[in-house]
Amino acid sequence: MADENLVDKTATDIGEPTVSEPGMPQLDFTTWDNQIFWLVMALIATYFILSRVALPRIGGVLAERQGTISNDIAAAEDLKAKAVDAEAAYDKALVDARSEAGRIVAEAKAEIQADLNVAIAKADEEIAAKSAESEKAIAEIRAGALESVKEVAKDTAKEIVAAMGGKADAKTVNAAVTARMKG
């Protein structure tokens, strides 16, 4: 209090009633020892807090996070490689399956074609046999028919000659009919 009064008095003497004591408190060297002492205490305290606890811990957390991130990235790359492998395997399996299917289809086609060829050949053979048989039968029938016509013609000619009142010589008539039919 006494100091304040003194200061006020001095200030009044100087003629600046409302301005505090002149000069900067920074240059009041009587307070330097106090500030320096407590500053050193504060800095030492801060240093120990930082170097013993805070910085190792934060550094550890950062390193751990970095490790986790790189591990995760490595794992992700691993999984990606696996996925690519799986896709390649799948594609290969697909291609294999396609070629296998193609092969099976071709085989089946060839088998069917072979079977078909055999069946066609057999059928052709049968048809040929049947038609040969038929031709033979037709030829027989035709031959039979020709014979019968000759018989009928001879008999008819004899009957006609007899009916006309002639005396039919069987041999002559027959010869005449044969000659005519050869006609």
């Binding site: 020892d33 106090n34 500030q35 320096i36 002492f37 407590w38 500053l39 504060a42």
Partner: peptide, 15 residues
């Protein structure tokens, strides 16, 4: 007075 060991306003704000 402010001695070297006094708890001053500087001390408090540093703390």
């Amino acid at each position: 007075d402010v001695a070297w060991y006094t708890i001053s306003n500087a001390t408090v704000w540093m703390a």
